[in-house]
Design a protein around this nucleic acid. Structure first.
Length: 480
RNA sequence: GGCCCCAUCGUCUAGUGGCCUAGGACGGAGGCCUCUCACGCCUCAAACAUGGGUUCGAAUCCCGUUGGGGUCACCA
């Protein structure tokens, strides 16, 4: 492709930004961001809010928030509503009307006064007789004037031949034109319908490649005919296979979280989600983990698969863990802060960065990361079964000696403390675990924690002694 | 139902006629490491829907069957 590509993501604000939409946005964005000779492509965000019943402001915000969280920035906008406002179709009504009038003047479209009720009767009848219904073309050639009340505009479809295109992921797709009907392109109130609004905007915005969900393949021939009628070069199409739920049905709420923002709130990193989405339907050999940079460099339509894929939360979770492990501390700290705040932990970034390394490789989500970091940032909280099992009268003498050892050797660091523990354990004729577990519970409140001696070192001398004393008190009292 | 699309381990996929006794990853099972947990490492189980062709040779090409999905609005 010699010219620089111009692509778009065109969601309708009738709900949150879901996983499927996010992947469509991602693929478009990746394609636009790829470095090329002569510059880079353009990624346009266009809100298709022509369904006034279902479109909501909240959905618009959810989509925008989702895009921003994922870091999928867009390049162009109408220049109104702020420098980074996307296009909104309802702000462009005069454009559609202009093009519709032009099509009518050209004889490629016509006004129609058939009512929905009349047509519904015919449709039901056809259904009863098991025939396909198609608008009979009642108003063709009637030359109904502009301004006629309740008139819609219909696009004149050819009745013979076929319309074909070469899809970047599915190959050649041909549709018999007899399957097409003179569909409404402009409602009686002047608001365009999907096929027309999308085409007019793609024309106006100079879109060269349309990548969207699989469910739009049937719209493509109709749109191709419209591009032609508008005398605009037909863009290239890439239809992405659907994303399914575990039961192979279209992904929906009952499969769990499908909203991008839900994943944000559940403690996923945007990079991990993007990484997962990229690998759902696209591959680059055996590689599973991609930096954003790698995705941008390596993405291409040639390796987009053409089979629907099941969304797998376990793999996303694994990827999230991998991303947490490799994310630089300052960045990770910044992302973790809100989750700490949510559980009432106040901490400086500096202190958090000290704590993060020890918990970084054992958290699958930022929520877990925050919970684990909490151990080092606020007072201890005890896990009952752990306490019951390990803070016992038998363990008390061991704990007392452990306290002495830790107190004496604390300044020498984790390794020295561990060595001292090993000595103590062998002197007592027990394994290190036997000694370490009660101390772990005393110091962390649980039998499960990061490595004990590093934990102790990180906690600080005074804090450790205090916790040990508290544990001894618990044993003496018989309860925490 | 018409039209269109799809079909490799449970899941995501590699594979573009010979390198495939089909590779990787998630998940599962077992093991190693080990102060618990996690990470890491090792091993195992696990797939070319089916029937015909084409070809010296088919997971790869063609046709049928079956099975899934999409779509048939003044929704997008």
């Amino acid at each position: 492709m010699a010219e620089l590509p111009r692509v778009r993501f065109a969601p309708s604000p009738t709900g949150f930004l879901h996983i499927g939409g996010a992947r469509t946005a991602l693929f478009n964005w990746l394609f636009a961001r790829r470095p090329r000779a002569g510059g880079k492509g353009v990624f346009v965000l266009r809100i298709e809010d022509t369904d006034r019943e279902r479109s909501t402001e909240a959905s618009v915000n959810a989509i925008l928030d989702g895009m921003k969280w994922m870091g999928l920035d867009w390049d162009e906008g109408p220049g109104v509503g702020g420098p980074h406002a996307p296009y909104f179709q309802t702000q462009r009504l005069q454009t559609y009307e202009k093009h519709a009038d032009a099509l009518i003047a050209k004889g490629a479209a016509y006004r129609c006064v058939c009512t929905k009720e009349e047509l519904d009767v015919l449709r039901k009848q056809a259904e009863k007789e098991k025939r396909g219904f198609k608008y009979p073309g009642t108003c063709r050639g009637k030359n109904i004037p502009k301004g006629t009340p309740r008139a819609v505009v219909r696009f004149l479809m050819p009745e013979a031949g076929e319309t074909a295109f070469e899809d970047l992921v599915k190959g050649r797709i041909a549709t018999p034109n007899e399957q097409l009907q003179d569909e409404v392109i402009l409602r009686s109130d002047g608001v365009p319908l999907y096929n027309f609004g999308a085409v007019v905007d793609d024309v106006e915005m100079g879109i060269t490649l349309v990548a969207r969900g699989d469910d739009h393949v049937v719209n493509t021939p109709r749109q191709i005919l419209m591009y032609r009628a508008l005398e605009y070069p037909v863009p290239t199409f890439a239809h992405l296979p659907m994303i399914l739920g575990s039961d192979k049905q279209r992904l929906s709420k009952r499969h769990g979280a499908v909203s991008v923002l839900q994943y944000r709130d559940d403690g996923f990193l945007p990079g991990a989600l993007l990484n997962y989405l990229a690998r759902l339907g696209w591959s680059h050999g055996d590689q599973e983990i991609f930096t954003l940079q790698e995705m941008v460099e390596k993405f291409g339509w040639e390796h987009v698969g053409d089979t629907a894929g099941v969304f797998n939360p376990e793999k996303l979770t694994w990827l999230n863990q991998q991303w947490i492990k490799k994310t630089p501390l300052p960045e990770l700290a910044e992302m973790t802060l809100p989750f700490l705040q949510k559980i009432g932990v106040v901490v400086t970034t500096q202190r958090l960065i000290e704590v993060l390394p020890i918990v970084q490789e054992r958290a699958k989500t930022l929520i877990e990361l925050a919970q684990q970091a909490k151990l080092f940032l606020t007072g201890i909280s005890y896990d009952e079964p752990s306490v019951k099992k390990h803070l016992t009268a038998e363990a008390r003498p061991l704990l007392v000696e452990a306290r002495q050892v830790l107190n004496a050797r604390f300044a020498e660091g984790a390794q020295a403390m561990e060595a001292a523990f090993r000595e103590l354990a062998s002197a007592k004729g027990v394994g290190l675990g036997k000694l370490a577990q009660p101390v772990r519970v005393a110091v962390t409140g649980s039998t499960v924690s990061p490595p004990l001696f590093e934990t102790i070192a990180l906690l600080g001398h005074g804090e450790v002694l205090q916790r040990l004393d508290a544990a001894l008190a618990i044993i003496d009292k018989g309860a925490p």
